[in-house]
Nucleic acid binder design. Sequence first.
DNA 1: CTGAAAATGATTGACGTCAATCATTTTATG
DNA 2: CATAAAATGATTGACGTCAATCATTTTCAG
Lengths: 347, 347
Amino acid sequence: MRNPTLHDVARAAGVSYSTADRVLNQRGGVAEKSILRVQHAIQELGYRRDIHAANLSRRRSYRFRFYLPQGDHGFFSVLRDAAQDQGRARALDRINVDVHDVPALDADALAIELASIAEGDCDCVAIVGADSDRLGAAVARLAGLGIAVVTLVSDVESHARAAYIGINNIAAGRTAGRLIGLAHTARYGRILPILGKLGVRDHRERLRGVSDVLAGVGGISLLPALEVMDRPDRMLEHVGKVLTMDPDITGIYSIGAGNRALIRILGEMGGARPFVVLHELSPHSRVALEGGLVDAVIDQKPAEEIAQALDAMKAIVDGEVPIQAEITPTIYLKDNLPGPTGDGEHA
Amino acid sequence: MRNPTLHDVARAAGVSYSTADRVLNQRGGVAEKSILRVQHAIQELGYRRDIHAANLSRRRSYRFRFYLPQGDHGFFSVLRDAAQDQGRARALDRINVDVHDVPALDADALAIELASIAEGDCDCVAIVGADSDRLGAAVARLAGLGIAVVTLVSDVESHARAAYIGINNIAAGRTAGRLIGLAHTARYGRILPILGKLGVRDHRERLRGVSDVLAGVGGISLLPALEVMDRPDRMLEHVGKVLTMDPDITGIYSIGAGNRALIRILGEMGGARPFVVLHELSPHSRVALEGGLVDAVIDQKPAEEIAQALDAMKAIVDGEVPIQAEITPTIYLKDNLPGPTGDGEHA
DNA sequence: CTGAAAATGATTGACGTCAATCATTTTATG
DNA sequence: CATAAAATGATTGACGTCAATCATTTTCAG
């Protein structure tokens, strides 16, 4: 079964290949009646450009840039590795991926980086978004230069951004709440939420999600959120103190990204451990999950996010509508982890 | 950045394009010393065939056949729709997908269907596997004809099958056990497992998984498994009876595929409902999850399975090694469901 | 009707690969 | 050294599309 070609379209429309090409590619110099005939033939035949043949002819390459937060957060290093690995694997699709580090939690630094991009420097840009007027303006400037911007993990408030790929953070918080509710089916409880910064929208949304669900579960109190600024020293200092002063805490929900210090605290606890939900599967959180220090990890599957970002960016550059496939909050327990297991209990 | 071409390889090896082509495609008529030079150049330059250009030149199309169980099981209709939709969406990659219905749970009927495939009829076949010597032999015959077979959802015991795409069922059962354990924190419980057929390996494996995990949780009894042969009438009759005779049942784990009858029973129950875990997200199980009749659904993401099957089949036909990306058991609670939500509580 | 502008058509070479065919060169054998 | 076989090289057209260029036809305006 052969797909229709532009030759077929031209024949069906009763025009030359040149005219069909002029219509398809909006080159001008075609009378309205011929335009309509070609468009009708395209629709009737279901013609779609063979993008591979077109790219071969044009010597097209797709130059994609990713601006990703640096730092010690496991999640962002997983995301960076995925961008680089998948970019490499897609060389035969003519995709070149350039990964740039930017300071974490610093929207202004990112905006400055984006401001240095000139027209024609690349075809599409992917960033981890943030709430920032300056960042929104930088995105809009790039769109004006014909460089589409895709946001990952966290969105921007700019209508100029071409696509968002990430989870719904309210749903993520609700999911954490549902799990905490499950673990409190037959008991009362006090839950400590820990977050990086209330100013970060994603963190606020997750807190709202967990709060909504727990409000509907009788017998569970949600404590005031503890802000640790994604700093391990603050995590060590403040969480330890709260746990000592309130030994009735039965659950912890860590909303932010950095969990190494928290895992350390959990490892050093004696007695009954609280039920713990973290975000993002990283080597550290994985070990904690496998070892029973942590009960659940809610993940946004960075490798899938990168794959979808690449698909979306390519579609945008090809002039197609990017498919908005959804990344749902993924729940990892001890038993459904991807890849080889550490505990050898099952093959 | 341009990928190296075969012209580059020929130049680097100091031979003509014709000779490089003969080596690459093993056409013969090349001296050993020239073969080594070309192979060395291929390796040094990291040359990879531009498969799109090659397919254009050869007028290649990929003819894939899917043999999927028919019947009223929601999961297999989701799988069938995914195969058809994704096949259509991949026409520009020259992929043609042909979906064939076969009787459910009937390995012999499937083997007979496979036996009617002649050499050259298609390029690759995907089936839902089963334990059956006859099926294994049919797979081996096809491999002998140069038609690779990929198994989905359930594997076969044949070394001749080219790839398996599906979840680890022991892990799926363990995951169900972990969830059940969570919901029984601080209380005792009695758990009723329901399965289609003990003779089906997948069902056996899931039962073993849940059994292993619950053995490590104090205070929970796993009742003898109830076999309902994937028949709604048996489900209605037997589950209702057991629930009446044993009102202390605190949890149900439905291992098999058909859950409409069970959902109906749950909807008609008065009093306290047991904690319920099902497999496979379908329109019916989704409604039950959203409505609170069911607490968790463990899914194997049929759309992702089909996508991976198509990738694997294409790789096999292209002579590449298919990437064995893993499908992990996906946990759906009320709050992390994909797509628009039914309850309108969050956007 | 004539001349100019617009529309349309024809042609060509390119992209990377496939595959067939024929020409030329190199190697092996007697 | 001569001949035959093997190895190698050159050429060509194809695939579907792009893009440029020039030729021809049609339309419009005076």
